[in-house]
Amino acid sequence: MKQGDLVVRKSYGGDVIFKIQEFTYQTALLRGIDYRLLADASVADLVPASQTLLDEHEQDMQRKSDEMRSWMTREQPAGADRRSARGGKPDRNSYPYFEVPGKVLHLDGDPNYLRKSMALYGELRVPAEGIYVPETNMADALVRLLPQVKPDIVVVTGHDGILKERKDASMQSLNSYKNSQNFVNAVRVARQYERNRDSLVVIAGACQSHFEALLQAGANYASSPGRVLIHALDPLYIAAKVAFTSIKDTVPIMDVLQHTMSGLDGLGGIETRGSHRMGLPKLKQP
Rank of each mutant, 00 (worst) to 15 (best):
M1Q: 08
D15N: 08
Q21N: 13
F23Q: 14
F23L: 12
L29C: 07
G32E: 02
D34F: 13
L37K: 12
L38N: 06
S42T: 06
A44K: 09
Q51V: 00
T52P: 02
Q59C: 01
M61A: 09
S65F: 00
M68F: 07
Q76K: 11
A78E: 12
G79K: 10
G79I: 03
R83G: 04
G88V: 07
S94Y: 06
G102H: 02
G102F: 01
V104G: 01
V104Q: 04
H106M: 12
L107A: 01
D108E: 15
D110M: 01
L114A: 07
L114V: 05
L114E: 03
Y121F: 14
G122T: 15
G122L: 09
T136W: 05
K150D: 08
D152L: 06
V154A: 01
G158R: 03
K164H: 11
K164N: 04
A169Y: 05
M171I: 10
L174G: 09
L174Q: 08
N175G: 15
E194Q: 15
E194N: 08
R195H: 14
D198V: 08
V201L: 05
I203T: 14
A204W: 02
C207N: 08
Q208G: 08
L215Y: 12
G218N: 12
A219F: 01
Y221W: 03
P225E: 10
R227T: 13
L229Y: 02
H231E: 15
L233V: 10
K241L: 14
F244N: 13
V251R: 05
P252W: 01
I253S: 00
S262H: 03
S262Q: 06
D265F: 07
G266S: 00
G266N: 01
G268P: 00
G274Y: 00
G279M: 12
G279W: 09
G279E: 13
K282A: 13
P286I: 10
